[in-house]
């Protein structure tokens, strides 16, 4: 099942499948690239940033950025 990164529930894991062209380079430096496994760790309230775990480290992304990243959810 596909979801946008910001739609992942707490502790839900997935594989990055698509990243909007406009962010591709921007998030690459933060460790978010196609094929990477991500796990949702925190969603800050009031449309705040989301924090995901990638390769044993945490990365926070603005909600609007997370919306432009598609992940294949692991069952």
């Amino acid at each position: 099942m596909e979801k946008r990164l910001n739609e992942l529930n707490f502790d839900e894991e997935g594989t990055v499948k698509e990243i909007d062209e406009s962010l591709l380079r921007q998030v690459a430096g933060m460790g978010v690239r196609i094929g990477k496994n991500v796990r949702m760790t925190t969603k800050q309230p009031m449309k705040g940033p989301v924090v995901v775990e990638i390769d044993k480290s945490f990365t926070s992304l603005g909600r609007s950025m997370a919306e432009k990243i598609v992940v294949e959810v692991k069952k």
């Binding site: 690459a28 430096g29 460790g31 480290s57």
Partner: peptide, 12 residues
């Protein structure tokens, strides 16, 4: 580079 975040550090 932060050794615990090696991969993304190598990107830069």
């Amino acid at each position: 580079i932060d050794s615990s975040k090696l991969e993304r550090g190598l990107y830069l």
